[in-house]
Each structure stands twice: as structure tokens, then as C-alpha cells.
Nucleic acid binder design. Sequence first.
DNA 1: GTCTATAGGCAGATAGAC
DNA 2: GTCTATCTGCCTATAGAC
Lengths: 195, 195
Amino acid sequence: MAATRLRKQTDTAQRILDVSERLVQRRGFNGISYANVAAELSMTKASLHYHFPGKAELGEALIVRYAARFADALQEIDRRVADARGKLNAYAGLYADVLRGKRMCLCGILAAEYETLPTPMRKATIRFFDDNVTWLTRVLARGHSDKTLTFDGSPSDAAQAILSGLEGAMLVSRPYGDLERFQSAAARLLASLTS
Amino acid sequence: MAATRLRKQTDTAQRILDVSERLVQRRGFNGISYANVAAELSMTKASLHYHFPGKAELGEALIVRYAARFADALQEIDRRVADARGKLNAYAGLYADVLRGKRMCLCGILAAEYETLPTPMRKATIRFFDDNVTWLTRVLARGHSDKTLTFDGSPSDAAQAILSGLEGAMLVSRPYGDLERFQSAAARLLASLTS
DNA sequence: GTCTATAGGCAGATAGAC
DNA sequence: GTCTATCTGCCTATAGAC
């Protein structure tokens, strides 16, 4: 029936996205090919093209799904953690989880390749960062107004500093394969906001 | 005479490095080709291979020269600026200059592509970061002991936080083409060390 | 040192059988 | 949906003339 066909197609598309996502987070968008992805799935390149007509479409779908998952994780933090400081710690924890999988943040690595990306991928990358800054800004503003956080400058400036600080900590830690490096930088970053 | 020939060869090699450096800092190592570089120099790909036998050798030469220049700039800061806070500001200024040229830090962009790099390039990238942390650690340790800087934790942990914070600020600012974003994050980062 | 010419491989992508 | 076969183009790299 239709539902089965739809499910099946969706499953395959999801598996393609799963493999592509991991490869891109490790090697960058310019560091992967349809051949790489197909080989890991024991499929042919032609089959991939059935699900995603071109690399640009695959890349865009990758970011859209990644951003949606990240948004879900932020909602989950809001549901489970009440205080601003706890939310920021949980936020940094999301990054640590990615790094534990020996991956870079998808949009962090795409930011590095930004100039080579097709326009839809560029826009989706920016949107991811904007969404993160929006969420962080809200957390910081609330923490500031209820006196649980102390920081100088505007909440949105502080939010941008957190985002870029965590992205940078991931970027530099990865060559060393050293999670501690990230944790130390992240802890210091949050401490400077919660002192 | 020999000196002329040597000079000429050196000049050409330097021009190749100049063009390659700019392209890699904008597009990443996997985002450039011998064809790109050759076209900008109105040369053929074959001529490039005369100066640098393969892309791996070109890439390594790129990092070595970049790191040497950076080391020179740090020496220059040491020569001209006495106080720790001033040195850190000048250090952040080096990054701002790179960003103004619409470039990413060479080793920052290579860190993103780390898994795809040949071993010599990996080692040279790590060395660049290590050199930076070493210099920053010295500045921070001295500033701490003469009470011009106040920060928690070890100087080397703080040094790593500065390095990754600045790299991250460059990374995230570039898609927005927004130097202000970098400046704001950099200022906040240094303020958290000098308060 | 720089060129032309070319090798050999892999990239993204498409046609068409099943 | 997935396959085989194939196209076109670009990639890194080399040979050899000038």
C-alpha cells in the first residue's frame, strides 16, 4: 500500500542522510562523494541520485534535517531544565556529544567551506546559526533578568560569543582528538557568563 | 648568474604560494585545484608541478610559510608591546586583519578538513596551534604574575580558550561577512581574561 | 622554467533495462 | 527503486619539446 511504499522510500532516504551526515561532519562537504556514500550503503551512485537528484539537494536536506534535530534538542532542554545555567550546560553538552562521535558540528564544518557551497546550502547554514543565537539569546535574557546569570553587553552579543566559542573549541580540539580540550574551553566560556 | 636564477625561482614559488594561500583560506584545501591556481597566475598546471611536485607538498609549504609569518608577527608584538593586555589585543588584531581580507585562518580552515589531509599537513597544522598556545601561555603567565591579568585556571588552559575562541569567531563570522561579529566576540573573550 | 599533450582516475550525473 | 552502462568533465600527475 501507499504507506508502505512511502515508509520504505523514507527509510532509504534517511539512511542515505545518516551516512552522508557522518561523512560530511568528518570530512567536509567537499571531502565526500556519491561514491563514498553509496559504498557504505552497498548501493550504487545511480540509486542515490534517485533519492537526491544532485549533491546540492543532498547537502541542503542534510542541513535542514540537522537543524530540525538540533531544534528538537533545544526544545527538550527547555522541557527538562528550568534554570538558565543548566540550559547552557546542557547546550554545551550537545556539542560535546557530537565531538565524542569524532564529528564536527555539521554547520561548523560547512561554515569553513562556505564560499564553495551552493546558495541553498549557504542559506540553510546561516539559518542554523541564527536559530541557535535566537535560543541562546532567550536563555541569556531570562537568566539576566532573574539574576541567575551575570554578564556584560547585550544577550545577543553574549549568545554569539557562546556559539562561536563552542564552534571554535570543537574545531581546534578535533585535530588533537582531545575531548578534554573542548571541555576545558567550554567550561571557561560558560563560567565567564555565569560568574 | 646563479643568484638571479635562484631569485627568479624563489619569486615564482612565492607567487604560487601567495595565490594558493589566498584560495585555500577562502575555499579550503579540498576546494582548490592546480587549475585554479595556474589560471590566476596565467601559468599552466605543469609549471606548478615543477615548483611543487604534488598538492601535498604545496599544502605543506603553505602551512610552513604561514606559521613562520605568524611567528614573526608574534615576535613583532613582543618587540612593540610591553603589557600583556596590549599583546592580547594585538594578537586578536592579527585575526581581524585576516578576516578583513575575507579569509579564514589557514590552519583554522585546515582543521575543518583535517581528516582528509596528508600526514605532513596534519603535523604542520598541529604545530601551528601548538606554537600559538605556547606564545599565549607565556603572555598569560607573565600577565598573571605581574597582576596585569586576572583569570582562573592555568595559563595554558586560558591560552587554548583564547585560540579556539578566536578561531570560532572567525569561522562563524565569515558566512555573515560581518567583521563586527568577530570584533564583539573577540572583545568579550579578552575582557573575560583581563577583568 | 615553461610549455603542449596526454595519461589515468574519479567526480557528478543520466539513460534505460529490470 | 535499484541496477548496469555510459557520458562528460575535471582532477592530479607525467613525458618530453622548447
